[in-house]
């Protein structure tokens, strides 16, 4: 971890992203995605929904960090963003 000052938190973050990519690849091979139209305004594949969900999640986290009080925990914002990601993946 000394090299380039990596921290465990950032390692966990990228670990999750790598895991997501692996899971998406496995899902794609096992059950190829079908483009469909949910509540999002455009027809999306599974990967599109992951991208949109992650982008929205990033913005929710930023909004939480930017608008919440000085000492507030980051977890409520994170929880909300993950709920949104789940919703986009499931019904988007």
């Amino acid at each position: 971890m000394g090299w380039m000052m990596w921290t465990p938190e950032v390692a966990a973050f990228f670990g999750c992203i790598a895991l997501m990519l692996v899971v998406m690849t496995v899902l794609e091979i096992r059950w190829p995605t079908i483009e469909r139209k949910g509540w999002l305004p455009i027809a999306t594949t599974r990967g599109d929904r992951l991208f949109i969900g992650l982008l929205l999640a990033a913005y929710v986290n930023l909004a939480w960090v930017g608008l919440s009080a000085e000492e507030a925990s980051v977890w409520p914002g994170f929880g909300a963003s993950m709920l949104l990601l789940g919703l986009v993946m499931w019904k988007g």
């Binding site: 794609e28 190829p32 995605t33 079908i34 483009e35 469909r36 594949t45």
Partner: peptide
């Protein structure tokens, strides 16, 4: 019926 998108 829509086909699966081939992303190979």
């Amino acid at each position: 019926m829509s086909k699966p998108v081939n992303q190979k």
